[in-house]
């Protein structure tokens, strides 16, 4: 089912992670990704993974949701892991034709898959606990320097909010259209790629038409509610840095420092 997609979804809640400032959440997510990439041994990687699991625990969102978001890119993780598995340097433990397995290769593939897992998990945390409006608001704040280059930051943020808002609506619609086309004998389950691609056309065309109709309606509705761009607009929820945010930053920095220390003092595998 298409509606199973959890990417970009938000789960309202009252946990500590939910309460963090959206700007801090976005910045810390990037910092976490950076930390994941500087990890050079299993010890530092374990520290990072544990801290991410700890944050997941704090977010009070069912672990099932995180697993669902993992499922989507499982293929990519497996693919990169397998490529790495067979392309290590050094003395092969096992060789068959051009395929050789080395200690280096095994380590690389475990490393890469763990890194990707951590990155997916951190970005899932970000979208799960941040409402799209907060996110857009935070991005508007973080991108403010760009307005010096005549880029209308507010418009970009508004477009993002609306795009995220319509993800579930359009998914549902795609699902309905698919069922309707299936009922008319469309061959969506075909193994043949060209056939499958052809069968997708009668799904995308009505979807696009309806998306435009929705866009037109929404524009009217926004006009009715006095929308006139970012100027003179206020916000109900004002982003504010509280002690909790400072604590989150310190926590992330601590993890970062631990990773750097373990990188320098640990013997690299």
């Amino acid at each position: 089912m298409l509606t199973d997609i959890t990417l970009g979804q938000f789960f309202p809640g009252e946990s500590l992670i939910h309460k963090l400032d959206a700007r801090i959440k976005i910045l810390l997510t990037f910092v976490y990704m950076l930390i994941t990439f500087i990890c050079s041994n299993y010890f530092s990687l374990t520290i990072t993974l544990c801290s991410v699991l700890f944050v997941i625990f704090l977010s009070k969102i069912p672990i099932k949701m995180y697993l669902k978001s993992m499922k989507m890119i499982l293929f990519i993780i497996l693919f990169t892991a397998i490529i790495n598995f067979f392309s290590g340097n050094g003395e092969p433990i096992f060789q068959w034709g051009i395929f050789k397995i080395t200690v280096d290769g095994i380590n690389n593939s475990i490393f890469v898959s763990l890194r990707l897992t951590i990155i997916v998990l951190t970005s899932s945390i970000l979208t799960f606990v941040t409402s799209p409006t907060d996110m857009a608001d935070a991005i508007e704040h973080l991108m403010k320097p760009l307005s010096a280059f005549k880029i209308n930051v507010h418009d970009i943020a508004m477009m993002m909010t609306i795009a995220l808002r319509f993800v579930p609506t359009l998914l549902e619609e795609a699902d309905k259209t698919m069922s309707a086309q299936k009922a008319r004998g469309s061959d969506l389950e075909s193994k043949n790629i060209t056939k499958k691609a052809k069968a997708l056309i009668p799904i995308f065309v009505p979807l696009f038409v309806s998306a435009f109709r929705r866009a037109y309606d929404l524009a009217t509705a926004m006009e009715c509610r006095c929308y006139k761009g970012g100027e003179g607009r206020t916000r109900m929820k004002i982003l504010k840095i509280v002690p909790l945010d400072v604590f989150a930053v310190l926590f992330t920095l601590a993890i970062g420092i631990m990773v750097i220390i373990s990188n320098t003092f640990y013997w690299r595998w």
Partner: peptide
């Protein structure tokens, strides 16, 4: 569906 702007 078409006149709701925000997700919450």
């Amino acid at each position: 569906d078409n006149q709701i702007v925000a997700s919450i």
